[in-house]
Each structure stands twice: as structure tokens, then as C-alpha cells.
Amino acid sequence: MSARDRILAKLKANAPSTAGELPNVADWYATHRSVESQADKAKRFRHFIELAHAEVYSVSRGGWLQKLWEVLDAKQLGKLLVAPGTAHGERAQRELAALGIDCPSYGQAIESWKSAMFNETPAGFTAARAAIAETGTLILWPDADEPRLMSLVPPVHIVLLDAAHIYNTFYEAMQTEGWANGLPTNSLLISGPSKTADIQQTLAYGAHGPKELVVLMIEDNLQ
């Protein structure tokens, strides 16, 4: 008998006869969390992610690139990793190049340029799929165009978020989008720059992930 079969046999021999009813998660959220307008959700999201030390800028659908450039300029960043396979990445690459910013793309599998990613990539630019107001949280589903390490390795992570896609809660996000039917290779909730309080409970930012998290929040026509 394998370890697997022995463990399962032991558990089965002693499992209770019934598990009872499925816990009612929906009911708890319905009675304990309110549903807010888009504008209020944007406000709440901003409040919490700023508390966690992220920078948030309100931008328009047409004007975010200007803000992106200003952020790079203010931080004296001359180089930005972008994902040209996406609409926002393609636009950033095209327009920022004209402004003198070097915009390498995540063109190759990481094995061929891992060292450059770790040592020579000061900032990365991705979009967020959605966000969560309750906790000030970005939702990212990295994919082939916008891979996982883009939002992790560069010391500055700049994120484009459409505030029309902010959910009230994590629960609402997964229910509305039907996550239980299938999740991608990696899905992420990000609620601020990397941090630690492991030395004498003193908060320090930039432990292993990005030291700075910048959110460009598109707030056109919020209801």
C-alpha cells in the first residue's frame, strides 16, 4: 500500500458521516458588505492602497501616457519594461520611445535574459485586470503577453487600472468573473509595494518585490 492509500484509508475510516450543508458565504457578504457606486469604490480602493504606501494618480483614457511619462521623469527612470503584445504596452512603447525612454519588451522566455531582468530592469509597466475596493487590491492575471516577473522583479511597478473594473470585495470579483470555472497559471492580488516588519516590527518597504507601486487609475465617466 502506498503512503497515499494509507493516509486516505486512515482518514476514510474516521471521517464523520456527514459534512452538513455548504457554508453560506454569499449570505455573509450580502449582510456584511455594502454595494457601492463606481465612484465610491474608486475612492475606497484609493484610500486603502495609499495606506499601504502605493502612489495613485487619477488619469483619463486618453491622457494616461502623459502621466506615465511624468512619473518616469520624476523618478528619473530612463528605462521601462513593457508588454507590446497588449494595447497599453504597445502604446507606451511607441510613444515613450519618442520621448527618449528606453522601452525593452518581454520578448523572449526568461531563461535567455534572466540576469538582465534582475540587474538591469529598473521599472515594469503592466495593466491590472480589475481591483478590489474593500482592501485596496489590484487583480493581475499575468499571461504570455504580460508575464509574471514583470510585476515582481523590477524595483518600480507601474500599473494601469480602469476604475470601472473595481469590485466591492474579493468574493464579488471571483463570483462575477466565474473564477471557479478555471483559473490561469497564476493569478495575483497585489495590495501595495513589497514590505516586511520582520526586524523589530519596524515596517520597511522593498523587501524582495517592487519598492514602489504606482497606480494610474482611469476615472473617465465613473457613475
Partner: peptide
């Protein structure tokens, strides 16, 4: 904390075409 900085959900190894992981 109302939530941790990261909540990381992993459902598979790198799929064909993906560039990291």
C-alpha cells in the same frame, strides 16, 4: 492587515508560449 501585500494563486506550471514561471 486588512489583506497581505500579495495573495498568490498558482494553478499550473508554465504553459506553452508563456515566458516565465
Amino acid at each position: 492587515q486588512n489583506i497581505s501585500t500579495y495573495f498568490n494563486m498558482i494553478s499550473s506550471p508554465r504553459k506553452p508560449g508563456e515566458k516565465d514561471g
